[in-house]
């Protein structure tokens, strides 16, 4: 999960309409907020949160019919960019024999179809509610509300929809997996640790993106 989330430092150039000259902060927030929860190719991920500061109190005025203000912004961006074969965790919101529906980080939908569920899991109905139960480990159960670890098969960047898989052995109910470490889990933990270390402050990815939103260049 950790590897799909990253913090980027970005130097941005934001064009602010002169009508907002007396409320620059608000204008910057509005411009950055437009990019929230949508995949942005420049950032190579989905912008989830941001904070920013202004390195200079002055801004260049763009020559042209409308004198836009070119404001330099130093921003910290929290980005979500799931890729194939990454491990993600999400909450199961619904399941039936054919599909398990998961929501990742509360906003991103994922679906795991029956052909991507390993044979160990069998669908059954207990107490009127459907669930997937492991034939190898009876307590390994997947039902609505379960926090599920799954593998990313593909990611639709436009809709922000993930197609997932439960084929690898180290996928399934997160609680069960953490209680019953297997060889695969150890291997996974090793990966996870390395992912975490990548988040250490000295390893934060630095991206220098300019401008932030190319489409916002008023004279492009």
């Amino acid at each position: 999960m950790a590897e799909a989330l990253r913090v980027s430092d970005a130097d941005l150039l934001v064009y602010v309409h002169p009508s907002n000259a007396n409320r620059i902060q608000k204008a910057l927030c509005r411009q950055l907020s437009v990019a929230l929860f949508a995949f942005n190719e420049t950032f190579d991920g989905v912008l989830l949160a941001y904070s920013f500061g202004l390195p200079s109190k002055t801004a260049r005025i763009l020559p042209g019919l409308i004198p836009y203000l070119c404001v330099n912004v130093k921003a910290k961006l929290l980005l979500f960019s799931p890729r194939q074969d990454m491990l993600l965790e999400g909450k199961v919101v619904k399941l039936n024999k054919e599909t398990i529906y998961v929501v990742v980080l509360g906003f991103c939908a994922a679906a795991i179809t029956s052909e991507n569920i390993r044979e160990e899991f069998r669908y059954k109905i207990k107490g009127g509610h459907g669930m997937f139960s492991s034939t190898a480990h009876k307590r390994h159960v997947i039902k609505p509300g379960t926090i599920l670890r799954f593998l990313v098969k593909s990611f639709d960047e436009e809709i922000l929809h993930i197609s997932g898989s439960l084929i690898p052995a180290h996928t399934g109910c997160l609680r069960w997996l953490s209680k019953h470490g297997t060889a695969e889990d150890s291997e996974f933990d090793g990966k996870k640790k390395s992912h975490n270390s990548s988040l250490a402050p000295h390893n934060v990815m630095h991206e220098h993106l300019k401008p932030l939103l190319p489409s916002q260049d008023p004279y492009r």
Binding site: T99, Y101, A111, E158, L160, H161, S163
Partner: peptide, 12 residues
């Protein structure tokens, strides 16, 4: 509902 949730292609 199933179509909309199963794949991003059908959501719209």
């Amino acid at each position: 509902i199933s179509l909309a949730a199963s794949s991003g292609v059908f959501l719209d």
